[in-house]
Amino acid sequence: MSAEAAAGRPADVPEGTARSASTDPGGRPEVTRGVARPEGGGRAAGGDAPAPVRQWPIIAVIAGAVIGLVVTATGQFRAGTILIGASLLLGAGLRWAVTAVGMLAVRSRFTDVITYGILGAAIILLGMMAQPDPLIRIPFLEDIIHFSVR
């Protein structure tokens, strides 16, 4: 056995040279083999179920958003916008309550719930404030809009 092998260093690496932890024994960079699934990213149903059944949480959220877009396109802006926001809130609730949500899990559970919840609430709030005849009035937001439009 050579002195380099006894020291745990390949013969082609000079003595005193630090070896990077991200290289394989041949000196090439390591290749990423895969990415860990987000927490809860497993199937929502067993592997023997058809694909739509395994991914029912994301299908429910997408279906709600599509229905909201269709309602908006037919001329009911406020109702469609509220449906879109409600489907995002449904996604937040499913991500929080269901352990395995399949493709609905994008990031950590905490981040997904906060993101879906804030976006859903903001879309509903903006839909309710839409002109003409808003359902709710928030004075400081109206002042900001009037100030910025001038």
Rank of each mutant, 00 (worst) to 15 (best):
I59T: 02
R137Q: 13
A60Q: 04
R109C: 02
T99M: 07
A63Q: 01
E142F: 06
G68N: 03
A11F: 04
G120D: 05
D12V: 08
P25E: 09
P14S: 13
G127R: 02
P25Y: 06
A49L: 12
G41R: 08
D112E: 04
A79Q: 07
V149K: 07
Q131K: 07
I124M: 13
L94R: 00
S148E: 09
A97E: 00
G40E: 05
R28G: 07
G102Q: 07
V70P: 01
G26P: 00
E4A: 15
L69Y: 04
L69A: 15
I82Y: 01
I118C: 08
R150W: 11
R54P: 01
G40A: 12
A11L: 08
L125V: 11
I59D: 02
I138A: 10
V98L: 10
L89K: 05
V66H: 04
A5G: 10
L83A: 14
P25D: 11
A73T: 07
D133L: 06
Q76G: 05
A51H: 00
G85T: 12
D112V: 09
V149Y: 08
A122K: 01
R95T: 02
R109D: 01
A7Y: 04
M129L: 14
V101A: 10
T17Q: 14
F110E: 13
G102D: 09
A122L: 13
R43N: 12
F77K: 00
L104Q: 05
I58F: 02
V13S: 09
V71L: 08
F77N: 01
I59P: 00
V13W: 13
I145Y: 09
G120N: 07
D143F: 02
M103F: 07
I84M: 10
M129S: 06
L83H: 00
Q131L: 15
I62K: 00
S22A: 13
V66G: 03
V13Q: 06
T72N: 08
A97P: 00
A60F: 10
V61E: 07
L104P: 01
A79M: 08
P10L: 11
G85I: 09
P57K: 05
T81C: 06
E142Y: 07
G46W: 03
V98Q: 04
L126A: 14
L119K: 01
V101S: 04
R9M: 14
A6L: 15
A3F: 12
L89H: 08
E30S: 01
T74F: 06
P10T: 11
I118P: 01
V53T: 12
G120I: 10
V66T: 06
R78Y: 03
A44T: 08
A105Y: 02
R28Q: 14
I145E: 12
G27E: 06
V98N: 03
T81P: 00
F140T: 04
A49E: 12
G85A: 10
T23A: 13
P10Q: 10
M129V: 03
I59C: 04
E142N: 15
S20W: 05
I123P: 00
W96F: 12
A105T: 01
P134C: 11
S87L: 06
I145V: 15
R109T: 14
V13F: 11
V35M: 09
I144G: 04
G68Y: 06
I67N: 00
R33G: 11
L94V: 06
T81M: 15
A92W: 04
D112T: 03
G27A: 14
P14R: 13
A45L: 15
S22K: 02
L90G: 02
P139K: 03
T99I: 11
